[in-house]
């Protein structure tokens, strides 16, 4: 080890041995870090409890109309009855299936298209105005057409989901592919790498951080697609339940569906985060 340190006279950024004896100051520093972390978690829970409590109290004393604003206890009751009815699993399952299928199709298809556009500069130039317009077009405007093209319900929702995610996937990934350092490409070329090798050994691994952030964006976007798709036409799913609750003036049902929706979306985001941490290791 000493031999390695010698010719450079600089401290290596890593330690091979873990330090055992800590100074008093270090212990204090660690303690402060821990305290800060506990405080943040506490505040997060506190705010949630405060909001729920305030909401419950205001509804209970009818400061706000519980019919329109619902209340935590009514939402819990509603969720309990939904679970007892059993149908809620079907609605959640359908929404989840639509989202996951849309998410996977959009991500894979978007990545493939981005690779093809990276490969051919001409295709990239030709497609640019189309991508720009597709990106700025509110995809929900295509809703009625989608129903006629693929039928209402499950498939229409998946298509909506894909449409919403795919354009941003293509644009972000293509951007990541083309912004790869030119010198790195030159390096690969000087080793006589083929274009396919440059893609596989440089462009793709280099774009992994961007890919992960696309995944994170797509979690949110695919749920937008699903709920929008279900609003437009569906007979099942959480978006359908929200719409149904609205038309029946059952706002407890609307609130309950929203809560379940956020649990599912949060869970999906959590999985992507887990994937990212795995990748980092």
């Amino acid at each position: 080890m000493a031999g390695i340190l010698k010719p450079f006279g600089e401290v290596l950024p890593m330690k091979t041995k873990k330090q055992v004896n800590f100074s008093q100051a270090h212990k204090k520093y660690i303690k402060r870090l821990k305290q800060e972390k506990i405080l943040v978690v506490f505040l997060q829970i506190f705010i949630l409890a405060l909001l729920l409590g305030l909401w419950e109290l205001l509804a209970h004393f009818e400061v706000i109309d519980p019919f329109f604003f619902s209340s935590p206890s009514r939402v819990i009751k509603c969720i309990a009855s939904l679970i007892a009815g059993g149908e809620i699993w079907m609605h959640m399952g359908i929404s989840l299936a639509e989202t996951v299928i849309g998410f996977i199709v959009a991500t894979l298809l978007g990545a493939i298209i981005a690779i093809l556009l990276w490969w051919s500069e001409r295709a990239r130039k030709v497609s640019q105005p189309y991508l720009v317009i597709l990106n700025s077009l509110p995809k929900i405007a295509l809703g009625p057409m989608i129903i006629f093209w693929v039928g209402s319900g499950f498939s229409a929702t998946v298509v909506m989901c894909v449409l919403i995610c795919i354009v941003i996937t293509i644009i972000s990934l293509l951007n990541a592919f083309t912004s790869c350092d030119q010198d790195k490409i030159l390096l690969m070329q000087s080793m006589h790498a083929s274009k396919f090798q440059i893609l596989r050994k440089l462009i793709l691994p280099n774009a992994i951080p961007e890919f992960v952030s696309v995944l994170k964006i797509n979690v949110g976007m695919s749920w937008v697609g699903t709920v929008m798709g279900e609003y437009i036409s569906s007979s099942a799913g959480l978006g359908y339940l929200i719409n149904y609750g609205k038309s029946m003036l059952n706002l407890d049902l609307v609130m309950a569906s929203i809560i379940l929706l956020s649990i599912l979306a949060g869970g999906m985001y959590f999985l992507v985060n887990l994937f990212e941490k795995r990748k980092q290791q």
Binding site: D183, M188, M191, P205
Partner: peptide, 21 residues
Amino acid sequence: RDHLFEWRTIWQNITLGLEIQ
């Protein structure tokens, strides 16, 4: 700049050229 590939280990970096060829 050294242009080492961050996602590869040192060993994988120095054998990059061998891998390509």
